[in-house]
Design a protein around this nucleic acid. Sequence first.
DNA 1: GATGCCACGGTCGAGGTTGTCCATTCGATC
DNA 2: GATCGAATGGACAACCTCGACCGTGGCATC
Lengths: 145, 145
Amino acid sequence: MDNLDRGIIDLLRQNARASYGDIGGSVGLSASAVKRRVDRLVADGVIRGFTIQVDPTVDGYNTEAYVELFCRGTVAPDELLRILSGVPEVVDAGTVTGSADAIVHMRARSIPALEDALERVRIAPNVDHTRSAIVLSRLIHRTHD
Amino acid sequence: MDNLDRGIIDLLRQNARASYGDIGGSVGLSASAVKRRVDRLVADGVIRGFTIQVDPTVDGYNTEAYVELFCRGTVAPDELLRILSGVPEVVDAGTVTGSADAIVHMRARSIPALEDALERVRIAPNVDHTRSAIVLSRLIHRTHD
DNA sequence: GATGCCACGGTCGAGGTTGTCCATTCGATC
DNA sequence: GATCGAATGGACAACCTCGACCGTGGCATC
């Protein structure tokens, strides 16, 4: 993981369909050297996958909320992970400092779908209550990884 | 935007480097028909770009926080966008319902870098104060788009 | 029903890209 | 300086891309 790798990753982040030759031209390697490095980065798990960014307003998943999760007693992160991984509307979540135990970013196709997903989070035995902030307008969505 | 387009998008989400021929084999089109549709989807802005998912622990950007933004008076979303787009550590942000004006998801290489980025958000003239929740452990990170 | 138009798909071929081979270079070690 | 390993660049066949061209079907107009 040297500067060449980082350069390749930066270029692939901008355009995952760039040819190895073009990438090599930018970082100063031949196409075959770039391919070897990319293959290694994928094998090592540094590059997790090649994907596309889709306009969220088009694919319909444009109803979002940030939800603070408050649990009863102490809940292990593993336990929270088990609860949340069963709800596909959860885009992003982490345990946090502060009064809430976790913050959960949810995305659904509609307010009812969001409400339904929220309900599935709330019925988990350890969840005491939640506090939601519905997203009114999306300002930034840097889709880094 | 029909079922063929949706199928192509799903396949590209899984592997943005799949060849047009392979995609066509899965959705039942020729390679050129797939290319035409992909080109159209890109031109129409449905597909915003081709990118890679990078292990966040490897690229070093693994210090995160959710920040509630409280503004003085009423602030237009455009104004917030202008403020936040100048801070690259802002991954995701939206105006929200509730007492805060916006929620901002930030990611940096270290706590000092996060603090610095937060400071750059706070010095904006309209920002009254912020309330941060530092992410302790990342639970979910579905990197859909 | 005939006509023109348009959107869409398939086929084809030139040119570019990928993936694999091998010789070479570079640096470290003995 | 000899040897080894890791990485590179170049060569080449197989594959893919991408534009040009043509055929088909839907649809409105005459």
